[in-house]
Design a protein around this nucleic acid. Structure first.
Lengths: 286, 286
DNA sequence: CAGATCAAGGAATAAATTATTCCAATTTCG
DNA sequence: CGAAATTGGAATAATTTATTCCTTGATCTG
């Protein structure tokens, strides 16, 4: 969490003096960055030493450290837009604020998602996808769309992929899985009953199961051999399903790009597959 | 331009001492932020005063100002990823570089997309979607997934929506359109033949056509009543279809959120629809 | 080539900022 | 009510930054 959110959260539990200092910093991070401890103290009518102590109480070694943290937090303003620390999208928000919050929460979930999966686990995933006889993608609802998107991309790379948006068909397909196959299961909650049953069946048949779920402990997670995580912005309920989908797409896009990197002839495949489609395009006029 | 690029550019014209200081800062901005002038000087074997003078020669009032600028520059790296301004993803790129480029290009297309559509045209679109008897969504390939995602969201709001991933079905449906309906057509190229034909048919039947295409002139654009734009990163060919899809999603997400804002009882609808789905979730264990 | 001029850069020092200590005033809690 | 803890400021110590001054060496000039 950013310093500013942290300060804001602790504000209520603080002594009056500290609260004033904290509020000033949260409200005027820009000014704060250019003020010395003495100047900041003067600004709010407190003593210079209080400011130093404030920094230390927050766990920073020095006032300078606090400044660095604030500066970094400000940079993340895209992530937690201007001042709106509790940034769910509200009914009263104007157009520009909504834009900022939307893009901010999307960016945040992307960043957190790539941060949540170690390079080690990603490269293990790549090996599995790379070595699989067939890749079976499952997911229901919004996750089904992500699965399909990913399946299109994998097909462009010439992989053997299977996905259907109907979960009964998915289940039927799953009964043909074997140890050389990989099941790639997407569910943010990790609790979608159809996806879970399919994963259980696949696991029983010796198929490697890759689960893409939220960070919480969940049933799907538990049957999986490889656990990938997507981070969505759960607090901001209204945009929740949006960021969960974005997080899944970020992860699958990343896997796709890394597969392209690994596969020397990937460009040919992608190019051919795109060229094939152009016969369905109208003449593009200038 | 960021301080770091500026320093880097001037490096050659600098006195040897300054050059050393500049190079250190460009190479280790993170360390630099935590070093005092004296410590930085010691690090590269120069005098403390040189460091101060270096800051002043760059036009900053103080060493602290330079630090602030560096901190800010580091932050902007996210927005236009690390030095790689023309940053298509290359075969030789390492894992962290790929992450940065991927998120960077996604962010860029989102930002440019929201910037490309004026508030005026967006609110006109909202009125149309709001007043439509039925909303017909069309798109093929990757655009079809976006259309479906948007259709799910509109359904959650209780709207009358129609979408099928099969373009023949889409066409058949389109023949039932009337003047009170709205056709929402997605195609980044604006030249997908099926989508175009459907839009033409709709236009002939007096249906309002909203087109979501790239910024270039294109056939779909020309038959549309309302033109919305998505900006994708065309230079970076490899990630092109990724950012085109992200741009479309950003736009449809934005429209969805704004519709929610307009509709007083939206939360009830969304909540009910999500509650209905939870019966298909397994017990979530702790 | 000698001497003047100037830029580079360090040492010393002045100025400022930050951190610590100590203490008085309040609040909290038994 | 009184002891203990907390708050927060004044004074001061320590550190950091900025300026001044000076040496060195390079360059220019007559």
């Amino acid at each position: 969490m950013s310093v500013l959110s942290r300060i804001n959260a602790k504000l209520d539990g603080m002594a009056p003096g500290d609260r004033e200092i904290g509020r000033y910093i949260v409200d005027n991070p820009d000014q704060m960055l250019r003020l010395s401890t003495a100047a900041l103290a003067a600004e709010i009518g407190r003593s210079q030493s209080s400011v130093v102590k404030f920094s230390q109480k927050l766990g920073y070694a020095s006032y300078q450290e606090l400044k660095l943290a604030v500066s970094e937090a400000k940079a993340q303003d895209w992530q937690v837009p201007a001042g709106v620390i509790h940034g769910s999208i509200e009914v009263g928000d104007g157009f520009p604020v909504i834009l900022k919050k939307l893009i901010g929460s999307k960016l945040l979930s992307m960043q957190q998602t790539v941060a949540a999966n170690s390079e080690r686990i990603i490269s293990r995933t790549l090996e599995l996808l790379d070595g699989a006889r067939r890749i079976h993608l499952v997911g229901v609802g919004a996750s089904s769309l992500v699965a399909r998107d990913f399946s299109y991309k994998l097909m462009k790379l010439g992989r053997n992929v299977l996905h259907d948006s109907d979960s009964h068909i998915q289940m039927a397909n799953a009964s043909t899985l074997g140890p050389d196959d990989v099941l790639f299961a997407l569910s943010y909650s990790g609790a979608s009953i159809e996806t879970l049953r399919i994963a259980e069946l696949a696991a029983k048949r010796g198929t490697t199961v890759i689960a893409v779920t939220g960070l919480h402990d969940n049933p799907l997670n538990r049957v999986a051999d490889i656990r990938l995580y997507t981070i969505a912005d759960e607090e901001r309920a209204r945009s929740s399903s949006i960021t969960a989908r974005d997080a899944q797409l970020t992860l699958t896009d990343l896997l796709f790009i890394l597969l392209v990197q690994k596969q020397p002839d990937a460009n040919d495949y992608v190019h051919n597959s795109e060229a094939a489609v152009t016969v369905l395009k109208a003449e593009r006029s200038t």
